[in-house]
Simulated assay, not measured.
Amino acid sequence: MLYVYAITADHPGPHDAGSLPGEGIVPGAPVRLLPFGDLAAAVSPVSAVDFGPEALPARLQDVDWTGQRVLAHQRVVDSLVDVATVLPMKFCTLFSGAAALRAALADNRAALEATVVRLRGAREWGVKLFWEAPPAEPAPVERGPGAGAAFFQRKRDAQRLRAEAEAALAHGVAESHRRLAARARAAVANPVQPAAVHRRRGEMALNGAYLVPRADEAAWRESLAELERTYAGAGIRYELTGPWGPYNFTGGGLAGS
């Protein structure tokens, strides 16, 4: 069986694999480039004992096993980002052998080549926006004459401040995504992650991915710096990640067989 990490184009040299890591998703199994016209597939051999259709579903239930292999998949893709145009494949894209993979490449050649044109010369960057909400409930007050009225006034004030902060956040999120997307070739706002997943302080309000031409990266990052300055006093902070393989912009990829 063959495990496919990515489809590549524009690789230096005739499908030179010098930039690939020594091993991929299976320890000791080398990663190589399988040429197909102007494209190549980054692959490594895997065993049906672990990756066959009967064994794989059970393996994927093992969090440690899966986590290690997700990271290995990512390492291979990352090794190609700076030396080629990369179309990352989904985790566990598998083929029975080279003939089946070449047949899939032939069937999807036009779509893959069109995607290469769209991705060429650009990399994916991620921006997450976090927000710390003001308290919705007022601080407790001392008991005494007028305490009840004061409490409800403070509660109304807290709710008003929360509503104003949420309106400012909505504007900040929309403006942030608009300005970052304007300097990118393509952009997508992914679903925000709950706190149990992102493990950051505050609420995630934007989980954006941006396909940025290399020539425009400095200007794009300056746009992000301007946003940080603009919203520094609004409880908003940004987290930049990347560059990544363009996972969010490759389309459907290949269906294994």
Rank of each mutant, 00 (worst) to 15 (best):
C92M: 10
P194A: 00
E226K: 05
P27T: 05
R200L: 15
V26D: 01
V43L: 06
A187R: 02
S19V: 06
L20S: 10
D78Y: 02
E132T: 15
E23Q: 07
A186D: 11
L119Q: 07
P14T: 10
A219T: 07
W125Y: 15
R178Q: 11
F152R: 14
P35V: 09
S79G: 13
W131P: 09
N248W: 07
H73L: 04
A72M: 09
L34G: 15
Q159E: 00
R229M: 04
G37Y: 04
L240T: 06
W131H: 13
V43Y: 11
A9H: 04
G13Q: 05
L161G: 14
A41M: 06
A187K: 01
A184E: 00
T230A: 15
G202C: 09
V127S: 01
N248V: 04
G242Q: 15
L180M: 10
V31R: 12
L87Q: 12
L169C: 06
Y210E: 02
G18R: 13
L240W: 09
R221H: 14
R75P: 06
A196V: 10
S19Q: 02
P213I: 06
T115P: 00
A55H: 05
P21Q: 13
P134A: 03
P134Y: 10
P243R: 15
G235A: 03
L56E: 14
L169Q: 07
L20N: 13
P140D: 10
R109S: 04
G67K: 08
G252L: 14
A139R: 12
A139T: 05
V127M: 02
A205N: 01
A209E: 09
F249E: 09
E203P: 00
L20V: 12
R120E: 08
A195G: 11
M1V: 04
L224H: 05
A55G: 01
A6K: 12
Y5Q: 04
D64R: 15
R201P: 08
R200H: 15
P213M: 03
T230W: 09
N207R: 07
R179I: 00
W244Q: 10
A48F: 01
E164D: 14
A9P: 03
K155M: 10
L169P: 01
T230N: 02
A215Q: 09
V4C: 14
V46A: 07
A168V: 10
D10I: 08
L101H: 04
Y247A: 15
E142P: 00
F151P: 13
F151Q: 11
L87W: 07
N248S: 15
P213C: 03
L60G: 06
E124I: 09
V116I: 12
D10N: 12
V26Y: 00
R162E: 05
L112M: 13
A147W: 07
L39A: 11
R75C: 03
N248P: 05
G28A: 13
P27C: 06
L224P: 03
V192I: 06
I236T: 11
A174I: 00
Q74K: 12
G22D: 13
L101N: 05
R214Y: 04
R59L: 12
A55T: 02
A136C: 01
G242R: 15
F51T: 05
V76Y: 14
A147L: 04
S223P: 04
S44C: 15
R109L: 02
A41D: 08
A232R: 08
A218G: 09
R221F: 12
P134Q: 07
A114G: 06
R69P: 07
F151V: 05
R160S: 08
A104M: 02
A17C: 13
W244I: 07
H73W: 02
A110W: 03
A133C: 03
